[in-house]
Amino acid sequence: MSTIWQSLELLVTKGLPTTVLLTLGLLGAGLALGFPIAFLQVYGYRPFRWLCRGYEQLFRGIPALVLILIFHSGLARSFGILLPAFTSALIALGLRSSAYQSQIFRGAIQSVPQGQMMAARALGMSKLQAIRSIILPQALRLSIPPWTNEFSSVLKDTSLASAIGVLELTKQGTLIFTRIQFVKGVNYILVILILVALVYLVLTYMGNAGLALLERRLRIPGFEMKGKVER
């Protein structure tokens, strides 16, 4: 039993921080890139729109693991660009997430009624002002529920970073259960795997709860679904 606790402690102290850091980094990078891309895709001049569409299609169409290997091994072999494993994973998965997030934001922007932009322009706001003060705040609120989904998916994608040696939760779990195979009379590989799964579950739950809280804090009458079906 004490070894199981020890394993959990090891997962939490040595694997978890990297997983959390990578998740936050990916969400941040995805946000920083995905948001402007979404705006360019909706409001940009035609060449920008094509460019953004190409970008989004490209990074949504390549498996995450292949992207990671391209940035980690491919670039190094062909151009001598030596990125640390964490950085490779951050860039590869960050680009992937930015493509997905851009679609979340694009959908949200496009679901803000046209009349909002029209009313803003009629007041004399420039397009940029209207986007910033009218469209953006509404689109952001509409983005939270689908973004919660992206959070869960990004969190679990971080486990792919173990393939290039990032010591995060999954890799730490692997180290633990490979060791116990060499320990006499001990065989609880399943327990270790369940522990790893549990840590991911708790993380997902906490993240979702936090985002739900944010959604409630930002809630505005008229933004939620109206007319609840009661039976």
């Binding site: 009624p113 009349g115 909002q116 029209m118 009313a119 803003a120 322009r121 009629a122 007041l123 004399g124 706001m125 420039s126 009218i134 705040p137 509404q138 609120r141 505005i220 008229g222 933004f223």
Partner: peptide, 20 residues
Amino acid sequence: INCLRAEIGFVFQNFNLFTH
């Protein structure tokens, strides 16, 4: 055009109040 629009009030059929 933004300066000129600022001097022309516009009231829409569907109000188009900023919902947020």
